[in-house]
Design a protein around this nucleic acid. Structure first.
Length: 688
DNA sequence: GCAAGGTC
């Protein structure tokens, strides 16, 4: 029998590092584009995350024809998504009698290991198996894990697989239900899911709040004070809801005020905490989409410039030599910043609240120069380097001044600050420091009032979420993971549920959330994830039967399908779909202008009054069309953006565009006519 | 062509 040992990790990088920690004379062989690390008859292989996907058999692929009920109890099959890896696993299986699962020490990691084990056992049923559990890839941790190997936790893997089944069944059934009912099929389908739908609900409900918001008037009083040559502004301590009251107070203010309180304090401001994925994406989203930021981080990681970008951890582990990394940057574009860090007698890093042991926070692992990277890559790299150096930098020192002034019983307050020493803020210039100025005052001092203003203001609706806000909120609500949140947002964009940043929902998004709230509210709530988490834990502990959990979902969905008013659902969704196509009002008959397709599937803007009204406008045929929320001032038609492979371009108002084009064409036509006339006037040369 | 979760 073969005497070999195979160690399986979740990713290539880990395989390489583990093999170098545990063995000497490691050789790397490359087959089918996959590295295997070998030392004698021991092999270390890195997977690529999940190599198997659950799906319905292909007989169920026709969305329109398959009754949804039959999908509920359809067999769920395993499809190999990483064929090359599966092939290598089968080949290696024949050379070994023992396998150690060394995937990440978490629920998904356990399942990923079991997926690989399944493929190995098919080729070699008698292979022995054990599990290495480590939470950091350091020599100490890895050696410890391999000296105390444990058993594979099949219950834990089962719980992860149950999550997959629940997600697939709910997702597929409701996605198909909505897509078929609305007629939005093909690449325009309407999706539903345990994470995306609650996220979309947040966006939709925020938009409803904004729509329903009734602004309230209020009044604020400002006064300008003068001490010597300094003029400074303070605000009345009260915000007035009543105009008369505000006017009364305003009149009372005399030409001078007494200083009731003055305080000056020096306060230190600690630098920001180390980057985990959420913090990183929130900061990067100031200038780049989370999706792009994440994909750049991934490539910087693969090139060895930064540490693993998918982490929840905000505390540097002791094993990282922070000073040594900072020292690397003395010979770099960040020389000044690194020197500031190293000028301190002792380095003290900030720490966040979340501390996990699997990956460190995101930090730079090697020095890059501007020429090594593309422009966007550099921006992300620079952000990560600056953040890292900032977490080790001295505090910023501020001078705070606060106080109270009184004029004829009316009180004014101020609270301003000024930077005395920027400290980390010089290293990390992404935040603007809001500074104000008030001169030093003495208690009891009388100050001259040179001007006063009564300002009418309005309360404002809550702001729309930005991508950065949402990723943070999703984390807080337990929606998605560090690896998926940015992808979920991307999904909402590509389904045309949302557009812009801050995010606005489309009309169909309102209809979808409305329909789901009426018929299957659970899928629009973070509670569904929370419930699933609890059940997964119980399955992992062996307290709950996985088939029961799946069955409960099936029965729940069956109930929904039997009670749903399909006609109403279809009507409401189609109305949403229709509204999203409305570009504006027809200038000729006043009916809605919509985006239509001609018989030869060319798109154009047409009037819903057709055939009575034959008004049309041309559209470009390439790229996908986005209606923006901005309207043309002249025609009241929504401005259009086109997204092509190269990026977005603003088309603006289609009507303006058309008129311009017609005019320029008219000029060209006129030119042609002129030329023709010219030709006629000129006597022709005679040719022989 | 569906979900969400890993990772490339």
């Amino acid at each position: 029998m073969a005497k070999g040992w195979l160690i399986i990790t979740e990713k290539e990088n880990t395989a390489r590092r583990i093999s170098s920690i545990l063995f000497q004379n490691v050789k790397r062989t490359r087959k089918l584009g996959i590295n295997v690390y070998q030392s004698n008859n021991t092999y270390v292989l890195g997977l690529k995350g999940h190599i198997i996907q659950l799906d319905f058999p292909s007989e169920y692929n026709n969305w329109g024809k398959i009754p949804l009920n039959s999908l509920l109890r359809a067999e769920i099959v395993k499809k190999i998504t990483q064929k090359n890896l599966a092939k290598i696993l089968s080949d290696l299986a024949k050379k070994i009698d023992r396998v150690t699962i060394a995937t990440d020490y978490d629920r998904e990691g356990e399942l990923i290991g079991v997926e690989a084990l399944g493929i190995i056992r098919k080729a070699n049923p008698n292979v022995e198996v054990d599990r290495a559990k480590y939470s950091a890839i350091t020599p100490a941790d890895i050696k410890q894990a391999f000296s105390k190997l444990t058993k594979v936790d099949f219950n834990l893997a089962k719980s992860a697989e149950t999550r997959q089944k629940i997600d697939l069944i709910w997702g597929a059934v409701l996605t198909r239900l909505l897509s078929v009912s609305s007629g939005r099929l093909g690449k325009d389908f309407l999706s539903v899911g345990r994470v995306q739908s609650p996220t979309l609900r947040l966006i939709v409900e925020r938009e409803e709040e904004i729509k329903n918001f009734k602004p309230k008037k209020y009044w604020e009083i400002f006064a300008d004070f003068r001490k010597n040559s300094d003029i400074f502004t303070c605000k009345h301590v009260k915000r007035f809801d009543d105009k008369k009251e505000a006017e009364k107070a305003f009149k009372k203010i005399s030409s001078q005020a007494e200083v009731l309180k003055f305080e000056k304090k020096v306060k230190n401001e600690r630098p920001p905490i180390p980057f985990n994925t959420t913090e990183f994406l929130r900061e990067a989203s100031r200038f780049m989409s989370p999706n792009k930021a994440m994909s750049i981080a991934e490539s910087l990681y693969m090139a060895g410039y930064i540490s693993y970008p998918r982490t929840d951890n905000t505390v540097y582990p002791k094993t990282i030599n922070l000073k040594a990394i900072a020292r690397k940057f003395v010979e770099s574009e960040f020389k000044k910043e690194a020197n500031l860090v190293l000028s301190q007698p002792k380095l003290r890093a900030t720490r966040g609240k979340r501390e996990t042991k699997d990956h460190p926070p995101i930090y730079p692992t090697s020095v890059a120069s501007k020429e090594d990277l593309k422009k966007d890559e550099w921006r992300i790299y620079e952000l990560i380097v600056r953040r890292f150096l900032a977490t080790l930098s001295p505090d910023a020192v501020w001078e705070h001044k606060s106080g109270l002034l009184e004029s004829n019983g009316e009180r004014f307050a101020f609270n301003v600050k000024k930077i005395l020493d920027p400290g980390w803020r010089e290293v990390y210039p992404y935040y603007r420091a809001e500074e104000g100025y008030v001169p030093d005052l003495r208690m009891g001092e009388i100050i001259e009032i040179v001007d006063k203003r009564l300002e009418e203001k309005e309360t404002k609706p809550p702001p729309r979420y930005s991508t950065g806000n949402l990723i943070q909120l999703m984390e807080k609500l337990g929606l998605g993971t560090k690896s998926t949140r940015h992808e979920i947002l991307n999904k909402l964009y590509s389904r045309r549920y949302v557009f812009g940043n801050p995010l606005r929902p489309s009309e169909v998004a309102f209809a979808v959330i409305d329909a789901l709230k009426k018929n299957a509210e659970l899928i629009t709530l973070p509670e569904m994830t929370a419930k699933l988490e609890r059940e997964m834990d119980e399955i992992a502990e062996g307290k709950l039967d996985d088939t029961k959990v799946v069955e409960e979902s099936i029965v729940f969905l069956e109930q929904i399908l039997s009670e749903i008013d399909l006609a109403e659902l279809s009507r409401n969704l189609k109305e949403g779909v229709r509204k999203d196509k409305v570009v504006g009002k027809c200038p000729e008959c006043g009916k809605d202008l919509v985006i239509r397709k001609s018989k030869d599937s060319k798109r154009f803007v047409g009037c819903t009054g057709f055939p009575k009204c034959r008004f049309t406008l041309p559209l470009p045929q390439n790229g996908s069309i986005y209606l923006t929320s901005k309207e043309c001032e002249k025609h009241g038609i929504k401005k259009i953006k086109i997204r092509t492979k190269k990026g977005y371009w603003d088309l603006g108002c289609v009507y303006c565009n058309y008129l311009e084009w017609r005019e320029s064409r008219g000029k060209e036509e006129a030119k042609k006519v002129e030329k023709a006339k010219e030709k006629l006037r000129k006597p022709r040369k005679l040719t022989r």
